[in-house]
């Protein structure tokens, strides 16, 4: 079994038996998770912000940080493992995008991240099959190659499958 840990702005995919792709403490960040039922490949990108236009230098250094750049890169990564380059047939799940308890639009980066990812998924003709987004709790999420299961962990709330 091998575990690939993604930090903020990282993306990665795996399809070897026993493989796991994991990211910690999503907060307002969102993990976009892709699963290919045909190749059994799984992939994830840990997106922190919706739009790369706010900082071009950072967009070049760490494109996975932004929804508009991270999602196409993850689809490319999946294509490297045999999935269609246009993303067709991929199963999508979204996890994260939490917010603080107050409904303050300025601070609702989580919601903006989720909306941005959905918008860019639509461009590929994709949409999430399942999502565990919003709320006021930080999530750690793993996706397993062998089962395709997406498991979420949260301090004080236990773990569940998405």
């Amino acid at each position: 079994m091998s575990q690939s840990i993604l930090g903020i702005g990282d993306y990665g995919a795996a399809k070897h038996p026993g493989g796991e792709v994991k990211t910690f403490a999503l907060g307002s960040c969102v993990a976009a998770i892709l699963l290919d039922p045909r190749t059994k490949a799984v992939g994830m990108v840990h997106v922190a912000l919706p739009d790369s236009s706010i900082n071009e230098a950072k967009a070049r250094q760490r494109p996975g940080y932004f929804a508009d750049l991270g999602l196409p890169l993850l689809i490319q990564e999946m294509a490297r493992l045999g999935s269609p380059a246009n993303g067709r047939g991929l199963v999508v799940k979204l996890v994260g995008g939490a917010s603080i308890m107050d409904h303050n639009d300025t601070f609702n980066i989580g919601k903006r991240n989720v909306l941005a990812l959905k918008k860019h998924l639509w461009a590929y003709g994709l949409g999430p099959l399942a999502e565990d987004v919003g709320g006021n709790h930080s999530r750690t999420v793993s996706v397993f190659v062998d089962t395709g299961k997406v498991i979420v962990n949260c301090p004080g709330r236990g773990q569940w499958e998405v």
């Binding site: 403490a25 907060g27 960040c29 939490a98 603080i100 601070f107 989580g110 930080s138 301090p155 709330r157």
Partner: peptide, 11 residues
Amino acid sequence: MAGCDTGSDGL
């Protein structure tokens, strides 16, 4: 929000 909290009280 950046996921750097102290556990169950985060957010």
